[in-house]
Design a protein around this nucleic acid. Structure first.
Length: 227
DNA sequence: GCGACAG
DNA sequence: ATCTTGTCGC
């Protein structure tokens, strides 16, 4: 699939923050009626140990069933440092390069990072969702901002994530007695549908299967960029 | 000024 | 994210 270039990636930190506030206004928390049969994509990135190369991988699975439909990856030079709140400017370019190699069109993307549970409401999942104009969900392994009460230990239980009085996401237990996932709307989905989708795409591990396989893929590919 | 801080 | 071995618990 081909992707439109919405803006430049060669910008200052101040410009990046302004751009985030601007793009955040384009996010649409709209109902996403999970199809009986859907293609769920997982996205993740890894870095060569010298910190100069980013490797992104996309894995598309059919849900239910978890059948592998296809996967693609791309590597490129790192051009932006890691700064809390500006993660998307570091990882999205490589993600787009990988997604452009796909021949199928996923119904939804599960992204490793926050959706709108972000200071300016534009975490990597939301940013990517605006660029793709497709449903995206933020699946972060830890908190960036917000307060919450620990969800119960049972699989499937969740609690709300708030920034002041604003509901920005959910803390979801995807596996019994295991650290919860921070789920938030990326684009074109509601928080409720995001939670349902994540649980539906989760098998026996903390991360939903598409994201877990994407992580597994980049971890292996990373090896080729060492020595 | 101090502490927090996705990957 | 990355650097790293074994180890405790379900």
């Amino acid at each position: 699939m081909r992707i439109k270039q919405l803006h430049s990636w060669d910008i200052t930190y101040a410009q990046a923050r302004l751009l985030q506030s601007d793009l955040a206004g384009m996010v649409q928390p709209q109902p996403f009626n999970l199809p009986e049969k859907m293609l769920a994509a997982g996205l993740d990135c890894a870095f060569s140990k010298d910190g100069k190369t980013v490797i992104a991988a996309v894995v598309v699975l059919q849900i239910p069933g978890f059948a592998l439909i296809e996967s693609a990856h791309a590597a490129m030079e790192v051009k932006f440092p890691y700064i809390p709140g500006l993660l998307s400017f570091r990882e999205i370019p490589a993600c787009i390069a990988a997604i452009e190699k796909l021949t199928s069109l996923p119904d939804v993307f599960l992204v490793d990072g926050q959706g709108i549970a972000h200071p300016r409401r534009l975490g990597i999942a939301a940013h990517l969702g605006i660029i793709l104009n497709l449903p995206t969900i933020g699946c972060a392994k830890s908190r960036l901002i917000g307060e919450f009460k620990e969800p119960r230990q049972a699989k499937g239980s969740s609690s709300n994530l708030y920034d002041k009085d604003e509901l920005i996401g959910a803390v979801l237990r995807t596996r019994k007695n295991v650290k919860p996932l921070f789920v938030s709307v990326g684009n074109l989905v509601t928080l409720e549908d995001s939670i349902k989708t994540v649980l539906t795409a989760t098998k026996n591990f903390r991360l939903p299967e598409p994201a877990r396989l994407a992580h597994q893929t980049v971890t292996k590919l990373k090896t080729n960029f060492e020595f």
